[in-house]
Design a protein around this nucleic acid. Structure first.
Length: 803
RNA sequence: GCUGGCAUGGCGGAAUAGGCAGACGCAAGGGACUUAAAAUCCCUCGGGGGCGACCCCGUGCCGGUUCAAGUCCGGCUGCCAGCACCA
């Protein structure tokens, strides 16, 4: 009898041995085929590891371990995305330096990851808060600045009232701060911006060249929000000046019955003396500004607005004079901040026109405007009417014709717009990368020289953000006051720091060559390792980290720094692990599971197996302690196979097919996120061993290798106990023979008129007539009437159709 | 509202490419072992009917294609996720 399975002993023993043997060290032998597997590096929070973390980490650990056994040089690294607000807030509250907080948290996380037996190459560990790391984050920023892609701008930003910090659009969710849930208001501040909009098209096009799961591609395209249309100039009645609008439906120009400009549109200030109701407009603007984004969204159905008295416009195609309104349903930040309103064919314009009783002219036939009080939106089948030279054309043709007309007359042109906004890159915070720019009275914004990097984050007395929205660094006059690198005159350092997304926008490059002092990574390392072959991470990062890092990488490609345009060849996403009640785990709900407890009570191998078995990888799944027990039971049964181990290096005749089938199934499923069915196949296999009460050494060996990526410790121990050569992590992945995955004799279902009535056993390559004859015999006297059709699906079923 | 996705036993979930629905696990029930319990092992386990070989029904709902539909097509309903006054 085997000794009982003691997961503490087994797991600690092998973790120590792997460390000593540097088992998972990445090789620098660039002649071998490479495989770069990547998971999102965690933010080392004070709470420690969440049971959600092991799901993606285990999944790619499986892939990494399997690839190593298949002969690849594998890079599977880990590091720390350690700048960020929670650490800073914790530091403020407890009067501990954020550096110390980070160090403690990293230590805890690292210990926890280590206890789970991941094959990360810890010799390549990185930390975004190391000056040797953020030196290169700053270096990339300088590149962006020098390329004209970083600029400072006075602009209304999303301001979190609680964090006292500016947020990127991507960080505002339902009008509240993504991180703390507090109200977000608009505040005009001078901010560093990155021109991600310049890369909008490249970021869309790049998606066609990579293998991302569909919903990630769709989300990114959606977020970038490309739309094609035209800009058209409407003359202001009696003025030289034109009012420029953007529309995706230039074909409906004849249906424009009024115009709307955003409340912040400069037109209003410009003509304040001629506008008769200027005060009313200002009052409306102030009211609109007070609304949070959330309120603006909530009030979608109820349109508001004020007509500008004393100012009208002329529709350039029919010279009709039309009124101009202001309304907050038109945004200053998109297009030109002004629209032509075509109420018959736009739902928002329709609502507005109905409310203020403005005229509605149908210009695309098929409209239900008059009959059903409803706007017409079927672009595909409509025909133009009431539109002079456009009459009778389809929407698509009318668009082309009108654009040609506008361009010829010089009153409009084709135009593409994006929803994507430039990236607000400043944070008024301490715990981030200093921005390597000084401001000189004479020379303006001047970048530091590369040789001055890293610009170290100075020690400060207090990390509290100030109420006037300045970074804590602003109080450090010694640090702030410097000289201009350009003219040598007095200058001030930038006191804002970079957002958390900076360090994570290029970290995958640093792993390829983490100690390089001369470059962010050597050319050779980048050429060998990039792109990342498989990157897995959360859906919540689709429009933040994933988009930002693609932008930086594409920029670095254009600069000749990296060898490929896209950083990630393949992107997958995992589902969330929920509490046992099906709700998101949280302290307040009391449904949090600590991975340390599971490792303690059941072992890392059980946790890993369970998280892979819990359900479809991309869907969320509720935690179940009973499910954990089931997986532990499975590992116990694997352990006890020792007791029924028999001689024989090959597979026994009756299990040969099953063995080949299982190798094929497990090998394939590990490649396409179907870890649950891979494990199910291994469970089914050991059930076969127990049915026979025997497992040959050859069968056992194969099972251990297949299971090793999922449960590395127990399989390594059993491998040693059984006396196989070397370590299991050094062995090769088993092959299967396709021909042997099919049983020589198969059970064939016999259908009569599409319903199963019997089964017959037949050789897998028996001919059709023979099988059908057997089927008829099996049906016996159930088979009545005239046979009209006989169908044979080789190796599967027979269907006899009789009338 | 738009976009993407999903809907299968008591539960989590399986089911190449349209070809025997419910693999694997959990829970439950019964049995063995035990003074007892736990653990372990064996059996049953979608619903209904029949002593029985067997028969009928069944993959959210309605219809269609097909010898054959969980799978394909059309129309609904419900749920999840992302975006949301982007002209």
């Amino acid at each position: 009898m085997a000794v009982p399975y003691n997961h503490h002993e087994v797991e600690q023993k092998w973790q120590k041995i792997w460390d000593e043997e540097r088992a998972f060290r990445t090789s620098n032998d660039y002649s071998k085929p490479k495989y770069y597997a990547l998971v999102e590096f965690p933010y080392p929070s004070g709470q420690g590891l969440h049971v959600g973390h092991p799901r993606p980490y285990t999944a790619l650990d499986i892939v990494a371990r399997k690839r190593r056994m298949q002969g690849y040089n594998v890079l599977y690294p880990m590091g720390w995305d350690a700048f960020g607000l929670p650490t800073e807030n914790y530091a403020i509250k407890n009067h501990i330096h954020p550096r110390i907080v980070t160090k403690n948290n990293v230590e805890r996380f690292k210990g926890q990851l280590h206890s789970l037996g991941y094959s990360f190459d810890w010799e390549r560990e990185i930390n975004t808060t190391d000056s040797e790391y953020y030196k290169w984050t700053q270096w990339i920023f300088l590149k962006l600045f020098n390329a004209g892609l970083a600029y400072k701008s006075e602009m209304p930003i999303n301001w979190c009232t609680s964090c006292k910090v500016g947020l990127a659009n991507e960080e505002v969710v339902n009008g509240v701060c993504e991180r703390c849930g507090s109200e977000v208001v608009r505040k005009v501040k001078s901010q560093w911006m990155l021109k991600i909009t310049e890369y909008a098209d490249k970021l869309i096009q790049g998606l066609d060249t990579v293998d991302y799961i569909e919903r990630v591609k769709v989300s990114q395209k959606n977020w970038i929000g490309k739309s094609q249309g035209a800009e058209v100039d409407f003359a202001l009645t009696g003025k030289e000046e034109k009012l420029r609008i953007y529309t995706t439906r230039p074909d409906t120009l004849f249906g424009a019955t009024y115009m709307v400009v955003s409340p912040e549109h400069p037109l209003i200030e410009k003509y304040k003396n001629e506008i008769k109701n200027y005060d009313e407009l200002v009052a409306y603007r102030e009211q609109a500004a007070k609304k949070s984004d959330f309120e603006r969204t909530e009030l979608v159905k109820d349109k508001t607005g004020v007509e500008i008295a004393g100012l009208t416009a002329t529709n350039p195609v029919n010279n009709k004079e039309i009124p101009i309104w202001i309304s907050d349903y038109v945004l200053m930040t998109y297009g030109t901040g002004a629209i032509m309103a075509v109420p018959a064919h736009d739902e928002r314009d329709w609502d507005f026109a109905k409310k203020f009783q403005l005229p509605i002219i149908e210009v695309v036939a098929g409209s239900k405007v008059s009959v059903q009080e409803q706007v017409y939106t079927d672009v595909a089948t409509g025909t133009l009417v009431n539109s002079e030279f456009l009459n009778g054309l389809s929407v698509a043709d009318a668009k082309e014709k009108i654009i040609a007309f506008l361009e010829e007359k010089g009153i409009g042109s084709r135009k593409t717009n994006y929803k994507l906004r430039d990236w607000v890159f400043s944070r008024q915070r301490y715990w981030g990368e200093p921005i390597p720019i000084v401001h000189c009275e004479k020379c303006g914004f001047v970048p530091l020289d590369e040789s001055e990097l890293p610009l170290m984050l100075p020690e400060v007395e207090s990390y509290e953000p100030t109420d006037n929205g300045e970074s804590p660094l602003a109080a450090m006059t010694d640090w702030v006051n410097t000289t201009c690198p350009h003219c040598g005159g007095p200058a001030k350092r930038e006191t804002d720091t970079m957002p958390q997304w900076a360090g994570s926008s290029w970290y995958f490059l640093r792993y390829t060559d983490p100690d390089n002092k001369e470059a962010l990574a050597s050319k050779e390392a980048l050429e060998y390792w990039m792109p990342v072959d498989w990157y897995n991470g959360g859906m919540e990062h689709t429009t933040l980290h994933l988009l930002y890092s693609r932008f930086w990488h594409r920029f670095l490609y254009d600069q000749g720094v990296v060898p490929c345009p896209e950083p990630y060849q393949k992107r997958t996403s995992h589902g969330m692990i929920l509490g046992s009640n099906g709700e998101k785990m949280s302290k307040s709900r009391g449904n949090v599971v600590n991975p340390d407890d599971i490792v303690q009570d059941y072992g890392a191998d059980t946790l890993r197996t369970y998280e892979m078995f819990i359900g479809a990888f991309d869907l969320s799944a509720a935690w179940s302690e009973d499910g954990v027990k089931g997986c532990r039971r499975f590992l116990e049964r694997v352990w006890k196979l020792q007791d029924i181990l028999v001689d024989g290096d090959g597979y026994s005749a009756d299990l040969e097919t099953k063995m080949h089938q299982t190798i094929k199934k497990v090998s394939g499923d590990f490649e396409c996120l179907k870890y649950n069915t891979a494990i199910a196949a291994m469970m089914a296999l050991i059930n076969e061993f127990y049915k026979k009460n025997a497992v040959t050494r050859g069968e056992y060996r194969t099972l251990l290798v297949l299971l090793n990526p999922v449960a590395p410790h127990i399989t390594e121990e059993l491998w040693q106990t059984a006396g196989y050569e070397g370590r299991i992590y050094q062995t090769t992945w088993p092959d299967y023979d396709e021909a042997k995955t099919v049983e020589s004799t198969v059970e064939i279902g016999v259908q009569l008129n599409g319903k199963i009535r019997a089964t017959v056993m037949a050789s897998k390559d028996a001919d059709k007539d023979a099988v059908i004859a057997m089927a008829k015999e099996a049906l016996g006297d159930k088979l009545t009437g005239t046979i009209v059709k006989e169908i044979y699906v080789p190796g599967r079923l027979v269907n006899i159709v009789a009338k």
